[in-house]
Design a protein around this nucleic acid. Structure first.
Length: 306
DNA sequence: ATAGGTCAAGCGAGG
DNA sequence: CCTCGCTTGACCTAT
C-alpha cells in the first residue's frame, strides 16, 4: 500500500485553531537572538518540541503516517549545544514522547535540512557548517529515539557542480565519511531540479556504490533533469538503493507556474495543490507530498483519488 | 491589530 | 549585478 505524507506545517490545525494551533517553527531573527540569547532559544525550542505530538495525533486521526519534521525546531542550534539548554530536561521528555508515539503507531518521521547544506563544497567552512547542521538533525532524531536507519531519513541534495561534477561528487563522498553515525545511518540524497546538476541516474550510479546512500527520486525535479530516464525507470532504479525492510521514499509536487497559468513563475516552484493522479506503478512506497497547501493538499488529493 | 519589509547560511539560472 | 527558488515562511516594527 502506498502511504502519503506532508512537510513541516499543519494547515488544518491553523484553520481550526488559528494562533493557538501547534507549530514547530517558532524562531527568531539574528538581532533577537543576540539580544535574548540561548535561554529564549531554549523556551522556543521547548514549545516547538511540545507541539510535535498534537500534530502527530492529528496525522494519526487522519490516516497520515508519514511526516517531515521541520528543521527549525531548535532556533540557532548551530550556535549552542542542545544538551546545555536551560530546558533540556523538559525538551528531552517532549521529544521522547513524540518519538514513542511515532513508533507505537507505525508512523515515520523524516527531515530535509536546507539548501545551505553542501557536503560537496570546495570551501571547508561550508562543509564544516553542513556537518554541524546535519549533526543537529541526527541529535534531535536520537533524542526522539527514532531508528538510526533510513526509516528516519535525513535527506539532502548534492546541490552543487562547481563546473566539475566528478570532483564535486568525490568531495561529497569524502565528507560523507566524516559524518557521525547518527547522520550517516540516516542520510539520503535527492535528485536536483536543474539539468546542470544531478539526476536520479547519476546519483544511483556515481554516489550510491561508494556510500550505500539511498536515493530519493523526486518526480517534479526529474522533469528538469531526467538523465534520459522515464519516471518509472527513475523510480525503479532508485528503488535498488533502498535496503530491505526500509520503505522507499519518493517526492511529489507539481509546477506552480502551470497551476497558476503564469509563465513568469519559475517552473520549479511548487504548486499549492495536487491536480494530477500520482503514478506509483504498483510499487509499495512512501510518497512525500511537497505542495504549499501541505496537509490540505494531501487531504484534498486523497478525497479525490482514494 | 495588521500590513509590509526583513531575515544566517550556498548554489545556479535567468534577466 | 540582482532576484528567485529551494527545506518550511516567520519575525519585527511602524502605522
Amino acid at each position: 500500500m502506498v502511504r502519503y505524507g506532508y512537510a513541516c506545517i499543519n494547515l488544518s490545525l491553523v484553520e481550526s485553531l488559528g494562533k493557538a494551533a501547534p507549530t514547530t517553527n517558532r524562531t527568531m531573527i539574528k538581532k533577537t537572538f543576540d539580544q535574548k540569547g540561548e535561554d529564549w532559544a531554549s523556551q522556543l525550542a521547548l514549545q516547538n518540541c511540545r507541539d510535535i505530538l498534537p500534530i502527530l495525533q492529528w496525522n494519526l486521526e487522519n490516516g497520515i503516517q508519514l511526516f517531515r519534521l521541520s528543521s527549525s525546531v531548535f532556533p540557532w542550534a548551530s550556535e549552542y549545544r542542545i544538551e546545555e539548554l536551560k530546558d533540556i530536561t523538559e525538551i528531552k521528555l517532549a521529544l521522547k514522547i513524540a518519538g514513542d508515539f511515532t513508533k507505537a503507531n507505525g508512523m515515520r518521521i523524516t527531515s530535509h535540512p536546507g539548501p545551505f547544506n553542501k557536503l560537496c563544497s570546495e570551501r571547508e567552512s561550508v562543509v564544516t557548517n553542513t556537518i554541524r547542521d546535519l549533526e543537529i538533525h541526527g541529535e534531535v532524531f536520537d533524542m526522539m529515539g527514532l531508528d538510526q536507519s533510513h526509516n528516519a531519513k535525513i535527506n539532502i541534495h548534492l546541490g552543487g557542480a562547481y563546473g566539475e561534477k566528478d570532483m564535486a561528487i568525490s568531495r561529497f563522498i569524502t565528507n560523507f565519511f566524516r559524518l557521525p553515525y547518527s547522520v550517516s545511518s540516516r542520510l539520503t540524497v535527492e535528485n536536483d531540479d536543474k539539468a546542470s546538476l544531478y539526476s536520479t541516474k547519476e546519483l544511483v550510479e556515481l554516489l550510491h556504490p561508494e556510500t550505500g546512500i539511498p536515493i530519493v527520486h523526486d518526480q517534479h525535479h526529474h522533469t528538469f533533469c531526467d538523465g534520459g530516464l522515464t519516471q518509472e525507470e527513475g523510480m525503479r532504479l532508485a528503488a535498488t538503493t533502498w535496503k530491505p525492510g526500509i520503505r522507499q521514499v519518493i517526492h511529489y509536487s507539481e509546477s506552480r507556474s502551470v497551476e497558476a497559468g503564469d509563465p513568469k513563475i519559475k517552473p520549479q516552484a511548487h504548486s499549492d495543490f495536487i491536480k494530477n493522479r500520482i503514478e506509483t506503478f504498483g510499487m509499495d512506497i512512501d510518497v512525500m507530498i511537497e505542495a504549499k497547501g501541505k496537509d490540505l493538499a494531501l487531504l484534498k488529493y486523497l478525497s479525490l483519488h482514494n
